[in-house]
């Protein structure tokens, strides 16, 4: 157990391991995205009230779900960085922030596009939408804070504190539609009990959520590899890997 963690913290080992992972994850992600998109956009039936406009759910919900889950990845990496001072945890946290920001932006923009024809408004300051906007600013805050420091060790520590304090927002986003009166409807996907979405529409949605998880993992890994190459550009192991050029 501990040897694996120590290995994970070793840049040459992680670089080789993530290389293999990316080679497998890339085709899997593309396949899942393609199958999920075709199934959701072309094969799944239209909704009884919203017609075809509900199909934006296949982008909106996966982006939002993974934006929330991705925040925990970033905050957990921040905690590991604060407690164990592992460089690789700093890199994970830093790599996850921009990906999470983009996913949150996708959720917000698709939500606005969906809101116009269904609710009649692009934007409403209800609890779900506002807390999601705060999540977007938290992600951007971590990115900006990291760049604001010259000393990257101090930067990582500040970012870890910010992302850990921000975790309180995640359950608020998740439960906002139940705790307060909001325009956004309650969750259709339920962890326990029957989902409020017909199975013919549910399966492509679950597939798309899985695809977005893979996409998140893939982009974070690629980000981390790019970061590693830059940080170790003078190291011998990297030069060896590059073919001794």
């Amino acid at each position: 157990m501990w040897t694996i963690i120590h290995k994970m913290g070793s840049p040459p080992w992680f670089f080789r391991f993530s290389g293999t992972l990316v080679r497998w994850l890339l085709p899997i992600t593309i396949a899942l995205l393609l199958v999920g998109a075709v199934w959701g956009l072309l094969v799944a039936p239209p909704d009884f009230r919203q017609g075809n406009s509900y199909r934006i759910i296949y982008i909106h919900v996966p982006a939002a779900v993974v934006a929330l889950a991705g925040y925990y990845v970033m905050a957990l990496a921040g905690a590991v960085s604060l407690i164990w001072r592992i460089k690789m945890a700093d890199i994970t946290m830093r790599a996850a922030a921009p990906v999470g920001a983009v996913l949150t932006a996708i959720a917000l923009v698709t939500g606005a596009i969906w809101g116009k024809p269904t609710w009649g408004a692009w934007w409403v300051w209800d609890a779900r939408i506002t807390s999601m906007l705060i999540l977007f600013f938290l992600y951007l805050g971590v990115v900006a804070l990291f760049e604001a420091y010259e000393n990257k060790t101090a930067a990582a520590r500040a970012c870890a504190v910010l992302s850990l304090v921000g975790t309180v927002n995640i359950p608020i986003i998740y439960k906002s539609v139940d705790w307060w009166y909001s325009l956004h409807q309650p969750a259709s996907l339920k962890l326990t009990g029957e989902s409020a979405i017909d199975s013919s529409m549910l399966y492509p949605l679950l597939l798309m959520i899985l695809a977005f998880y893979c996409l998140f993992a893939l982009t974070v890994l690629l980000n981390m590899r790019a970061e590693l190459v830059w940080a170790h550009r003078e190291s011998s192991w990297l030069k060896q890997l590059a073919g001794g050029a």
Partner: peptide, 17 residues
């Protein structure tokens, strides 16, 4: 301003019918 609030149920028209 009047906004429509829809619920969390999604189903094909045949199922709804």
């Amino acid at each position: 301003q009047v906004l429509a609030k829809h619920d969390e149920n999604y189903m094909p028209p045949e199922v709804a019918a």
